[in-house]
C-alpha cells in the first residue's frame, strides 16, 4: 500500500514547550487513527502535515512532498480542525461556496459538488440556516463537508468526535468509514479515546509526549494494554478467602486488603486471565462482590507503561 505520510525524527518546539519530540511515523493509505491524550502532540502533527507550521528538525513528506510553503499540495489534502472556526453569520451553503472558491472551484461544478457533499454529511436540509445556530454535531459535519468539498486524496480529521453526543458520534464514525470505503479517501483521524478509533479502523498510532510510542494493528495495541500491570479495585463482603485464592494464581502480583476488609486492590501482571478466571473464583470462594473496577485501564496509564 502507498505511504501517504512519512515522518523521520521530526521535532517541533514552541519556545521551551516541545510539541513533537523526535517523532517518526509511516502512514499508509486507508484509515489510520492517531490516538493520544490531550497535549500529546496530535494537533501539532496535523499543523505540520498541512504546512501551517514548520518542523524544527527532521524529515517529513506528505503524499511524497514537503508540506511547508507548498500551497499547491493542499489541493490534495482536506483538513478538519478540532476547534470551531465556522463563521456564524453565514449559512452552511454560503460557507461551502466560499471554501470552493478558495480551492479554485466555481460555477456549476461547485454548485453540484456542494449539493453532493451536503447530501453526504446529511446537512442538505439545514444548509440555508446561519451556522451560528448549528449544534455541535451539525458544525462537525459541515466542517467535514468543507474538508472534502474539493475531493482531496487525503483527509486529516482532528478530533472530529469531540463534544458530540452518542447518536452524532455514531453518524460521524459511519461517515468516516464511508469516506474511505465508498469514496476512496485516505483518512488520518485523531482522538484521545482508543475505542472510538477502534470503531473506525484497525490501524493506529499511539502518541504520547510528542512521540509515536506504538504503531500497528489495534489488536497488537490491545495486547500491549492487556500485558501491562493492572490495579483492580474489588469491593464487597467475604473478600478474605477470595484474596487468599487470588494469591495462588500466577497472574497475581499482589493483593492489598484494606483495613475495613470490604475492599482490596489486586495487582495483576496480565489483565485478560484475571478477568477470565475472576467469576469462577468468586463463585468458588462464596464472596459477595458489590463493585469492581480497573484503576488504570486508561490510555494515560498505557502510555506511561509504554514509555517506561
Amino acid at each position: 500500500m502507498t505511504v501517504i505520510v512519512e515522518a523521520t525524527n521530526v521535532s517541533k518546539w514552541y519556545g521551551k514547550v516541545i510539541g513533537l519530540n523526535n517523532f517518526s511515523l509511516k502512514v499508509e493509505g486507508g484509515i489510520t487513527g492517531i490516538v493520544g491524550p490531550n497535549g500529546a502532540g496530535k494537533s501539532t502533527l496535523f499543523k505540520i502535515l498541512t504546512g501551517n507550521i514548520k518542523a524544527n528538525v527532521g524529515d517529513l513528506t506528505v503524499l511524497g512532498q514537503s508540506p511547508w510553503r507548498n500551497p499547491a499540495q493542499l489541493a490534495q489534502i482536506g483538513f478538519c480542525p478540532d476547534y470551531d472556526f465556522l463563521p456564524g453569520e453565514i449559512t452552511g451553503r454560503e460557507y461551502l461556496r466560499y471554501v470552493g472558491g478558495l480551492h479554485g472551484m466555481s460555477g456549476d461544478k461547485l454548485k453540484a459538488r456542494t449539493e453532493e457533499v451536503l447530501e453526504l454529511v446529511a446537512m442538505s436540509k439545514d444548509a440555508d440556516r446561519n451556522m451560528g445556530g448549528y449544534s455541535k454535531g451539525m458544525k462537525q459535519r459541515l466542517k467535514i463537508a468543507g474538508a472534502m468539498l474539493h475531493d482531496p486524496q487525503m483527509l486529516l480529521l482532528d478530533e472530529p468526535l469531540t463534544g458530540t453526543d452518542p447518536v452524532v458520534r455514531k453518524e460521524i464514525i459511519d461517515l468516516i468509514k464511508d469516506l474511505h470505503a465508498v469514496h476512496g479517501h485516505d483518512v488520518i483521524v485523531s482522538s484521545h479515546v482508543l475505542h472510538e478509533i477502534e470503531r473506525m479502523t484497525h490501524r493506529v498510532a499511539l502518541i504520547y509526549k510528542g512521540r509515536a510510542v506504538a504503531t500497528g494493528d489495534i489488536s497488537e495495541i490491545r495486547q500491549l494494554m492487556s500485558n501491562h500491570p493492572h490495579h483492580i479495585l474489588v469491593e464487597g463482603n467475604g473478600l478474605i478467602p477470595l484474596a487468599q485464592r487470588l494469591l495462588t494464581m500466577d497472574f497475581t502480583v499482589s493483593v492489598e486488603l484494606r483495613p475495613d476488609r470490604r475492599s482490596m486492590v489486586v495487582m495483576v501482571g496480565r489483565s485478560d486471565p484475571f478477568f477470565d478466571s475472576f467469576p469462577g473464583l468468586v463463585k468458588e470462594t462464596g464472596s459477595d462482590i458489590a463493585r469492581m473496577e480497573s484503576m488504570d485501564d486508561d490510555l494515560e496509564s498505557v502510555f506511561k507503561y509504554l514509555v517506561g
Binding site: 499540495q73 465556522l86 463563521p87 480551492h103
Partner: peptide, 15 residues
Amino acid sequence: DDRSIIQVVTSPLDR
C-alpha cells in the same frame, strides 16, 4: 486569534 484563518491557510491559494 480566533483561528478562523485556518480555512484560508489550508487552501491551495498562495498565501
